[in-house]
Design a binder for these strands. Structure first.
Lengths: 326, 326
DNA sequence: TTGTAAGCGTTATCAT
DNA sequence: ATGATAACGCTTACAA
């Protein structure tokens, strides 16, 4: 071997910058970080900055983390990335707010089967972990860990959402109601809460048991079968509450394929108010901005080491949107 | 202040483990990393492991990265997380394969306005960057950067997808065709390619210009207006190719709201074959497994420092799924 | 079979 | 106004 040519070029360090501009590494650090107290002459500042630029110096995160004891990384753990626009908005808001404090948000699709949690900790050292998307709050690396933890799910009143669906259907005169659940382990936590809320409401309103069917997104046959079940028999239902808007849309389409119309032969109501729901899905809208605000508050408190704030159970998170389907 | 109580407990280091088990730090490192050559007695191994466990030691990623010169982190850059199940599947496959090689995949929602790219490099030092979801390949921190870069978008023949839509519609006898584009800067790159492919095909087939309309997901009024445009006038279209399945679903729903039926008064075809498309959307399916395989190959080559492989233009990526809507 | 020590790139404390 | 220097936690030749 003569000269390695394909080898990634060596990293440019502050030491290189210091040497090239004839100052010490300390000075470079002061300049590059705009340290307030230490008065470096404008001439030196310009020189250092220009040299750094010229050499193509880029600060090294890991080294900085090691020295500082903080990585400035907030790690969000999700089950999958089909998280929809609610979670997307949440992440956007979070990252923007975190950026203002010098922190960066990274999302990792955590799957215990792919890599145990313990291994993850050896690879990345976040200052804070946010568990999202119906993910159970994972355990910390160890009791002695300096990492803080925030669970997002507990902050949202999914239970109320389920209840609101039933209450609305009841107010429209429906008495025999079905429930279309989403058969997906990834959203099991959220699904259970929404279902429980629906059950709360139906008990309080003295309605007969909800006729629950589990659906898989995209399994049209199952949707057809559920509709047949719901509409046949001596005591057919007149309305169905769906786990979310996508489930509702699938039901509405299945109804149409059978020549039935949502809102007439069968009322259908969803949750979320995703963009596609505007095609006529009555739904319980989640106010993402307000939700994001609460999460943000909790995240910021966690970062500052303040204790959790008890979940405020505000209904303002949600709003009923009436369209054609119910 | 007497004793700080709320302070995050100090990190447990390998030095602590070494001290507690009466061995050197080197030995601890050997044991914890299962270094093959160095023969440590089983007794010592057990002791060290047990001590580490007891003290709650967790390896420190940044320190490891600093020493190794590699972070073992692969950073995927996306525009947003409404990336749908195609990209989600991709990420799952990627992470699993990367995990087998000790690497971890993290996703960051990159927005130049929130934080310039240059700042990002100072926070995280990935070994590889993968730009996804219709994101233009970002520039590296500097020419001297050891970070490798892989763009995903160029690997998928979106252009062919658009062409396949038009070819199918043509084969079904349609001559005057509309095109429903998605008005979202986030997918602009992909949209342009699919559109260009559709244009390719319509020119080759000698069809009149496509009547293009830009739609916003959830803007039902715009969908109504587009339908009116398409269906009125002296020369109404008989079919429309949509940017993706969601756009197609919106159109189908809008048609139904107007008392029209997709596949009869107007044929509609999408792209992706998302789960919800099974409600009757004719579409060009993307074979995610095969797509993932190609990306994975490219990513692995990049990690190993091998040169890019030229994009293989296989049609196997896609398949036509005929349902009711066209 | 295990210990010693150097070094990765950065920041912060002290001198000068 | 700037420079030495130590320290962050880890890995790894080399010494014992």
């Amino acid at each position: 071997m003569t000269e390695a040519t394909n080898v990634p070029s060596k990293r440019v360090t502050t030491a290189d910058v210091a040497r090239a501009s004839g100052v010490s590494r300390a000075t470079v650090s002061y300049v590059l970080n705009d340290v307030p107290g230490s008065g470096i002459s404008q001439a030196t500042r310009d020189l250092v900055r220009e040299t750094a630029q010229r050499l193509g110096h880029v600060p090294h995160g890991p080294a900085r983390s090691l020295r500082l004891g903080r990585s400035m990384i907030v790690l969000a753990l999700v089950h999958d990335y089909t998280i929809g626009y609610v979670a997307d908005h949440l992440i956007a808001v979070l990252d923007k707010a975190l950026a203002a404090r010098g922190l960066v948000l990274m999302v990792h699709r955590f799957d215990e089967k792919t890599r145990p949690l313990s291994e993850l900790w050896g690879l990345v050292a976040p200052d804070l972990i946010v568990s999202m998307g119906g993910m159970a709050v994972p355990s910390l690396p160890s009791a002695a860990s300096p990492i803080r933890l925030v669970g997002v799910e507990g902050l949202f009143p999914h239970r109320r959402a389920g209840a609101m669906q039933i209450e609305y259907l009841h107010s429209r005169g429906h008495r025999r109601i079905g429930y279309a659940d989403l058969d997906n382990p990834r959203v099991a936590l959220i699904a259970a809460e929404r279902r429980a809320g629906a059950e709360d409401a139906r008990v309080k309103l003295g309605l007969p048991p909800l006729m629950r069917r589990d659906l898989l997104l995209g399994d049209v046959d199952a949707a057809f079968a559920a509709i047949d079940d719901w509409l046949s028999g001596p005591d057919p239902i007149t309305a169905v509450a769906a786990h979310n808007d996508e489930t509702a849309i699938m039901l509405v389409s299945a109804l149409q394929a059978k020549g039935l119309r949502a809102g007439r032969e069968l009322a259908v109501i969803g949750v979320d108010n995703i963009p596609l729901a505007r095609v006529g899905i009555t739904t319980v809208e989640i106010n993402v901005d307000e939700y994001a605000e609460v999460i943000l508050d909790q995240v910021m408190r966690a970062i500052d080491g303040q204790p959790d704030r008890p979940p405020t159970d505000r209904d303002g998170f949600m709003r009923l949107i009436v369209r054609d389907s119910a």
